[in-house]
Amino acid sequence: MNVTTNTRAQRMTFWEKLYLPEIAKGLALTFKTMFKPKLTRQYPEERWEPLGSYRGRPVLVLEEDGERCVACGLCSRVCPALAIEVQAGETEREKERYPVKFEINMLRCIYCGLCEEVCPEEAIVMSKDYDIVFHSQEEAIFGKDKLLVPIARLQERLEFLRQYK
């Protein structure tokens, strides 16, 4: 093994060993870069629109006649972060059961998407919301008021699920 006799330093040419020409090259490169178009997105003004495959915060699908969820509790059961709490109640509607209380603790949720995968009714899906903020721990628990999202706004995700799930 003759590794040490062929190091990078020994393979360098005289000009490379002088450093300065190489430094000048590097400087030229960074100088050119200064005038290239910038990649920064000016966030609050310019927003990024995710694709259907994006896993944002989980939301409940709201149809014209109410939520799809039948309060089976599977999502709550599968959630690895124990973020979901469901309390079932009875309803006059055809599906007979509905969630009286449905809460997701957004401080716990890890956006894994298992709840969506396990749901038999396709009632909980991952949305495109990625800027989720709150000022206190209480605020971080999203109830039905925040979770229910009209189905029209979730079409892209539902389409994606139909194709790839």
């Binding site: 960074t30 870069t33 200064m34 005038f35 290239k36 178009p37 910038k38 990649l39 920064t40 000016q42």
Partner: peptide
């Protein structure tokens, strides 16, 4: 500013 420009930032 200059460091940002060199790194494609603003």
């Amino acid at each position: 500013r200059i460091s940002a420009w060199i790194q494609y930032r603003i």
